[in-house]
Design a protein around this nucleic acid. Structure first.
Lengths: 229, 229
DNA sequence: GTTTGTTGTTAGCCATGTCTAACGTATCGA
DNA sequence: TCGATACGTTAGACATGGCTAACAACAAAC
């Protein structure tokens, strides 16, 4: 089954919900894509007919091998395009997602190949998301959320969710990008902000922002400064 | 009226037919786009409702000011993309048209601007076609066809029609690109080939090829410069 | 003058993808 | 136990954009 542009969007949404650990149901897909529940019902029926998804009792929908292959193809094109737009065209960090979102459906295999080669077969896009290979296994696992890091730890940002341009612009403004090390400070109680130190400056991040940041504890730092590689 | 992707294709086809001096009718559009006549009838009705085309007795269809504006936007994006793909991505001459054909419908204004600036606001695409400005007047006039050049003249190629990849590949192979000077030789009668000298080598071009080449006589050469035989 | 071909339109069908309205189930609180 | 809330589906509508079949009108050919 050759997926249409709309079907590709659904497959991608299902893939993302699954890898994020969310349940994959009519309503979660509808929320994610901003469409009505009956629209999802209809599309899921088409995807089932095309053997791209199946229903697993309880959990909801699961991609078949073919469905996952198609989803990964779209994800690959999306992330390659993001990388290309950022590195070659000079599109700012916070804009690449939206541009890639529309272009990903009209990128030919041939052009995808060329872009991939031009970029030197990158492994990650500008937000730190792994770029699936053209074929073969792919590991989409997310690193730990920043919120899981203990106070006093030094945390290395690995991925920054690319969905909210305004948030991305703000995070880039204070230097929070993949690869950056931050010191995790105090956490205000009852959903209050988390204090972090980036580049020597302290910032209070609300939950809306901390949820976007994933990475790993680099060292359970006790001492405040001293930069190591 | 915000044109859909399909409507953009029709507007572009109408624009091209008109500027090429062809009649703009249901059947010529259908032939150009490879769709059935009733499909054209239906789309023309929608375009008329959207005030993008009007019927002129006899000649057929004519773009309104708004229709031409939209057609030029698509043509601009197409030619900018061709230039971008060729110069920045390294896509071969004969492939850029097909790639641009699909991407042109999903290029945002913002990205179009960036690409235009990155390229230094080019005036022509790789085939020599003029890139319409974002707004303001645009001159699409085609130069004279090579077939109009007298025997013995030196002819400067300005535009090479980009529609046939195989022909383009062949022409590129023998050095026939925009900006190149050719010496027009003998013309075989009854639709026979036209002999031209490019880069010191003589080639016989069939009408299928000569129709793709447009330019201007650079000098009405009388003496067969040592290159010609 | 009749036939034949070109041209354009209608009529009718289909697939895709969206929507709202309405209707079942379940589940959870009060 | 009853009602509110969430979830999913069906029914029915609409826009878009394609198709074939059939027909009307006209011009050129015989």
């Amino acid at each position: 089954m050759q997926a249409t542009s709309a079907a590709e969007d659904y497959l991608k949404a299902i893939y993302h919900l699954a890898t994020e650990g969310e349940s994959v149901t009519t309503s979660t897909i509808a929320r994610r894509l901003g469409v009505s529940a009956p629209s999802v019902s209809a599309m899921v029926k088409r995807l089932e007919a095309g053997k791209l998804v199946v229903r697993r009792g309880e959990g909801g929908l699961v991609l078949t091998a073919g469905g996952e292959r198609q989803a990964l193809r779209v994800v690959r094109r999306h992330r390659l395009l993001e990388t290309f737009l950022a590195e070659v065209v000079g599109v700012p960090w916070d804009e690449v997602h939206d541009e890639a979102e529309v272009l990903e459906h009209s990128l030919s295999d041939r052009l995808e190949e060329r872009i991939d080669a031009l970029l030197g077969h990158p492994a990650h896009d500008p937000h730190g998301d792994p770029i699936p290979p053209r074929s073969g296994p792919h590991d989409e696992r997310w690193a730990d959320p920043l919120t899981a890091a203990p106070t006093g730890a030094r945390f290395r940002i690995e991925r920054v969710s690319d969905r909210d341009p305004d948030a991305l612009r703000y995070l880039a403004g204070i230097g929070l990008r993949p690869g950056v090390l931050v010191d995790v400070g105090a956490r205000a109680p009852f959903g209050g902000p988390l204090w972090v130190t980036v580049d020597g400056a302290e910032h209070a991040l609300g939950t809306q922002l901390t949820n976007l940041l994933h990475g790993a504890v680099a060292r359970a730092a006790k001492k405040p400064t001293r930069r190591t590689r």
